[in-house]
Design a protein around this nucleic acid. Sequence first.
DNA 1: AAAAAAC
Length: 690
Amino acid sequence: MLGTVRRFGVSQALRATAPRSVSARFATQLPKWQAPSALSSLAATRSLHSSFPRLSAATAEAIVEETESTKPAMITEFSDLASDNLIHNTIIKNIIQPDRMNLKTMTEVQSLTLHEIVKGDDILAQAKTGTGKTLAFLVPTLQNILNDPTVDVSKVGRRSARPRTGPSEIRALIISPTRELAEQIAVEARKVAFGTGLVVQTAVGGTQKRAGLAKIQQEGCHLLIGTPGRLKDILSDPWTGVSAPKLNTLILDEADRLLDQGFAPDVEEIQGMLPDPTKVDRQTLMFSATVPREVMQMVRQTLKPNFTHVNTVREDEVPTHVRVPQKLIYTRGLENNLPALLELAQNWQARRDNGEELRPFKAIAYFNSTAETKVSADAFNAIARSSEFRQSSMRNMRMLEINSRLSQALRTRSADNFRKAREGILFSSDVTARGMDFPDVTHVIQVGVPRDRETYIHRLGRTARAGKEGEGWLFMHPAEQDVYRKRLGRLPLKVDTVLESANADLSQTFSNDTPVGKIVNQINEGLAQCDGATKVKSYMGQLGTATGNFNSKREAIQALNQMFTVGYNMPTLPELSPRLMQQMGLNRLDGVSAGDGSRQRRDGGFSRGGDRGGFSRGGDRGFSRGGDRGGFSRGGDRGERGGFSRGGDRDGFSRGGDRGERGGFSRGGDRGDRSSRPPRRSFDDDSFRF
DNA sequence: AAAAAAC
């Protein structure tokens, strides 16, 4: 049952026990077995495991037997935390009272980290998704703030309404990789801290900076939770008055994510704004379900040399839950993804209609690009508006969308609505992949191979939380198989063939007589109501991932082209500029529609297509839906007509004649005003408006 | 051109 607790540099730790102010402060409150002299006995590696996160009485006994000679039983009930004066009564009450958080038994990661954190140790804690990591760091951290003699939680003002604290009283800082996760942690923290006088604040992007600042300035702050950008912004600006000179604890939630390429510089910068750890002693806590080998070096650099590694996931074990069936669906083409998704939902609903005792269908569908997320959500929303759908037993399913290109207000609304929803589908990018706790998610469906193994594991972890059931599905094109094996490694996925529409040839016309035909036609109607420009964005968005995911770029383009023409029912392929093609290492033999990009600009997104200027159209390209097309061999034709050299001669893409014909459209790179591109496009930008 | 994250 117990995970591994490894101490690093134990001899060092023994030598250094006395001077550390944090541990000294709590020495009297620690149970005897936790006294420094017992450290060496804790160094033993324990290796009992279970997939069930809660400690049962039986296993607790086993632990006692195993370790009785060295120390008493580990605390497994929240109520027992009162006995040693370890945790404040108010906090315990908040946790266990039925009208509050209503929790009883601690999870493994919670009971294994609590003492270490209260003691002031640096910790790396690894535990499976949905096993209560958030509470594991919140409870002891809030307790540590309460224990700090320099913290004043008494109130001032009329009716003692205002805590006696200020914006520079921050004792603990939690960094989260996404805004929604930061907010979620804050909600949890406020529940734990209720009635203690401790003040919890957030600092995330997409919100009004001034309002957030004013709140911190007026109410003060003991625990600040935020995302890297806004934290940097606030902490670096001396005018805000928000600072952390007395910081005791720094917490990196989803630590491996925060230490990877994308976030590490920001996190380091934030650390640079905090007091010098050699002058003000500070504890650093890292939590995640995954800690890939590559980031372990970063972990060691960031933590003290004598940090404790609490690992409840065995080294040779996949950090997913054994109770979660994981199914792999091979799709005939990328255009089969949405029909397969609809079929999955309908199958489940049909079984419920037949009286099977199944929970309401509450699924998250993950996509690898934001624009694909949007097309899919739009299509399903259109389907949900149809009278057929509204008269079916599916009518209560909510179709929701969330990704970073939506305004923060819409993101928050989607997340809240999905949290509350009894049944529905959340069409999501990886914003929700980590840490988000949507109750009762029954299905996690990953459309396309995710960017890495960790992403797969965290996405899957949105289901089967807190001991509940759930299932995972991965929709994959056969040409993604190589990268699937290489990138995801060993995972307990089983090939499944129940979804008929995953394998249907969608270039045919279907009648509504068959279940598959009905599904395909529903999807077609849904997609018909989507904006063409959005479909172009989706194609472009998937271009990046698909060319990296497929066995070859050629196969990726072919699959995308077919998805675009057959699935999206679009007449003309999006044109790729020579510059983009060069960047992606594509040539026209790969089957792309090569252009200089001017058409998309001129048309404002290419939605109508068809008969524009006779440019880059094969005669039969139009609306015919031959499955054998996929835009292949067109590139060559065009090349010939234009009289350009073919075959790997990328320089041949400067197509002076063509440009001249179309009225001397100057190319992007040449124009001074385009040289400084906006750092990031959003759905609100012209460049990315759908 | 591919998640996320500050104005």
